[in-house]
Design a protein around this nucleic acid. Structure first.
Lengths: 259, 259
DNA sequence: GATGTTGTCGTCAGGATGACGATATCCAGG
DNA sequence: CCTGGATATCGTCATCCTGACGACAACATC
């Protein structure tokens, strides 16, 4: 019933897993153990199995290659702050030396987590800071820029999607634990956007946006400074679908003052 | 080299082709000539050929089933106001009775155009108004809601993407001819969003947003009323990538006054 | 000419934003 | 104990953006 002219393509999923660690946006990369691109860094991913959904495949490959168990589907409110969404699909031609291969990329936003046990087709899964697009840094500084396949482009698309989503969705909370302070949330925005935000204005906007945050009433003291109030994502909010009104807009490109 | 556990999937492209006609957002649908879903309305689309890119396949299927020649890739500035972008990919399981099939959906935004010659696997390509999501209308009124496969969901995703894109991108011009009036542009926004916009405020925002419109200096008189100035999309602007600052935001949901 | 229609420019109040001062509450060290 | 540094939170103020709406210009039709 399916016409003969229709071709069947091998399909892979590749996961752009982002987190915020040490005040910087970081991406999860693996070292490829197999050809092609053996020894090259790449996004975790692999072939979709016959009876699998795309999302299940993304979660499975992430688990196999990094030991990380991602929830398939959106986590049940608090307890699963992770967010997994489809990014886009990269066409079958000219991206794999073995022949035409379709790749469906997924974007995972998660709090920083450890990397228990790499395995499968990859070794040495580790986090790498994502260099600012505007500031590629001096030669040799950027640890990225030479990924396998077309993963450089997929990573760039994923980072741009994440940056844009923080503006109009509550997904910044996907990088935080269940409960967090406004300062931690601001640090997420600053790390993902690579900008500096005024703490006072950010506090006013974040707490003043309806349907975003909910105060727990408890405090948390950590290090110096006045203890901060703990917040959580407002209940009955689907962080994948909710829209912030008004949005938190990125400050327009700040031209660095000439030194 | 590709592992045996990797499955190969037939891949289709489906096109959500939207336009604005008669003051309403309309979608291009075909009547399926072949099983499955023979006789049911569906989005134009079909299987990807072995040596084809996804975008080429989308353009080809659109041409085959509707006689419409869409540009592959982004048109060269003025002369090709059409816009074709990838929407998302719908997983292989449970969407085609013939078995697992991957579908990559594309979104086409275009000015109203005629439908020269349906052919291929479809007949009777025609435009159908997209009902407002909020107002499904009385039973039997909505011409949609029973499309083949999972095309209802794909259409809903495409419409939502189009509505969101008008806010922060210059893509509303993709529904217009090369040169257009502010009134025509406003009619596009009103049709896509299903709302009413104040003509004076819209004029101020549209002409006041940098990097959006460029006045041609010429006028056009059509019907009654003062002739309107003709504008075109600002040159050296990639409508697919440009971002409007500030964005044109949809008015928040207008609760219908109780009658 | 009167009237209706569409386009363009102004006005004005209210809300949102960015810059920044002021205060609260902690830690560290004299 | 007291001071200084650090973080959190609250206020103030000028500016910009927005929505609501008045005013006028330039057309068609009667």
């Amino acid at each position: 019933m399916i016409p003969d002219s229709a071709a069947a393509f091998p399909v892979t999923v590749d996961v752009v897993a982002l987190t915020v660690r040490d005040g910087a946006l970081q991406v999860l990369l693996v070292d490829r153990l197999l050809e092609p691109f053996r020894g090259t860094r790449a996004l975790p991913g692999g072939f979709v199995l016959p009876d699998e959904s795309l999302e299940d495949a993304a979660a499975r490959e992430l688990a196999e290659e990094t030991g990380v168990v991602a929830p398939s589907g959106n986590g049940p409110g608090p307890g699963h702050p992770w967010h997994l969404e489809q990014l886009r699909t990269y066409g079958p031609q000219g991206r794999d030396p073995r022949g035409p291969v379709l790749s469906v990329a997924y974007l995972l936003l998660a709090p920083a987590f450890g990397l228990p046990a790499p395995g499968g087709d990859a070794a040495e899964a580790a986090w790498f800071p994502v260099p600012d697009a505007e500031e590629p840094g001096p030669a040799g500084t950027a640890p990225l820029g030479a990924l396998a396949f077309d993963h450089d482009r997929i990573l760039a698309d994923g980072v741009e999607r994440a940056r844009a989503k923080l503006e109009y969705s509550p997904l910044a909370t996907a990088f935080c634990a269940d409960e967090f302070t406004i300062g931690e949330l601001r640090a997420v925005y600053e790390a993902v956007w690579g900008t500096h935000l005024d703490a006072r204005n950010f506090h006013r906007k974040a707490t003043g946006t309806p349907g975003f945050l909910e105060a727990t009433g408890r405090l948390r003291a950590e290090g110096p400074g006045r203890p901060a109030e703990l917040y959580r994502l407002a209940p009955s909010v689907d962080p994948a679908a909710a829209v912030l009104h008004p949005p938190l807009l990125r400050p327009p490109a700040t031209p660095a003052p000439p030194t």
